[in-house]
Design a protein around this nucleic acid. Structure first.
Lengths: 199, 199
DNA sequence: GCAGAAATCTAGCAGCGCTAGGAACAGTAC
DNA sequence: GTACTGTTCCTAGCGCTGCTAGATTTCTGC
């Protein structure tokens, strides 16, 4: 009985080990460097062991992605609770996460993984993240649907994150673009461009 | 002399043949189905011929992507010229393109290809597309920087396109989200949600 | 018609994700 | 302590990938 419990625990630990190793390898050298052979070497087991835990490489990436969603949700939550402008804080936290953990962000969004979105079986971490967005757009929704506005904010942030990351947008104006997004989304007066300094 | 010219022409034709075959294969079965072997078979040459035209598979995808940028730019331009609400028309054209040619759109944005953006050597087709965006945001810029606003619009559209495509956003509300984006971007009164029907 | 050059193909390399089959290890019963 | 049983794990290998060296065919100019 107890031995069975121990084994189960060890199995779970090893599973975490695999996920962590995959994540670290991806963050260090990008996802194309994450091969089953290198991953097996990193956890000091042979390749087939990976397949006793996950259906395949995609499933491993999905597991890493779920971890990422949890971390992103936490980031946004802390940002929201500590700031007096929650919308700006959450949006900033989102973009900072994408910048800080590019490989992780890739796994979550760019690699089209078979993770269920907007469905009952959607991982909690994912729903939690969306809740944060919902929360901060509520005050600015006006007559509009809050869900749609949250989706829109998400889209804009995702677009900014990926285009910046792919070198499509010059990185220098990152903050200015974010400020502009917030100004336009909230519908605040467009009087002074940037803050203070006039064009 | 003439034979040399003919050869050069034939080479150019074959290069186009390769690009077209790659694009068709990708659109029919997705990029993971585009292997150098299948591509070689499609153009009825052996694999090494591909490498006498392109540095590698990535370069072929990049060539397909450039074609895509040209097509997108044309789409947006026609939309802008024919409509009386250019902003909505261009935005709609952008999303329609992403929906109609998912594989092409992938090559252009999701696969991180080594295409220079926002640089002197950026392909013309790419700059032309951005110009269209610049053009339609001009009337709504107010005191804001037009370039930044165009980048913002682009980001939002890109986010909508990719999140929808990846199943991250339910497709049903596509149009509603677009309408909401335009309303918020332009800063028009947020009185009635959707058109007509009240919540 | 023939030498030399250019174009093209055959064959193969190293690496990929994944898996079948056997070896090595535990825990159990006597 | 020893033989048995079931699990765990590894070795070896399959079919695929992008890519390339070297032989072979085809064409050009005389």
């Amino acid at each position: 009985m107890t031995t069975q419990a121990r084994r189960q625990r060890e199995r779970a630990e090893r599973e975490r080990l695999i996920i962590t190793a995959a994540r670290e390898l991806a963050e260090a050298e990008g996802w194309e460097a994450v091969t089953t052979r290198r991953l097996a070497e990193a956890v000091e087991y042979s390749q087939p062991v990976l397949y006793s835990h996950f259906a395949g490489k995609e499933a491993i990436m999905a597991a890493v992605a779920v971890e990422g969603f949890a971390e992103l949700a936490t980031d946004m939550r802390t940002a929201r609770e500590r700031a007096d402008d929650p919308l700006a804080a959450v949006a900033g936290a989102y973009l900072a996460f994408a910048e800080r953990r590019p490989a992780l962000y890739d796994a979550m969004f760019s690699r089209s993984l078979p993770l269920p979105f907007a469905a009952p079986e959607t991982p909690d971490a994912l729903q939690a993240g969306f809740q944060e967005l919902l929360h901060v757009v509520r005050p600015i929704a006006g007559g509009d649907d809050e869900g749609q506005l949250a989706e829109l904010l998400w889209s804009a942030l995702h677009g900014l994150a990926t285009l910046t990351r792919g070198g499509r947008l010059p990185r220098e104006l990152h903050e200015a673009r974010l400020a502009l997004l917030l100004r336009r989304l909230t519908g605040s007066p467009t009087g002074s461009p940037h803050r203070g300094r006039s064009k």
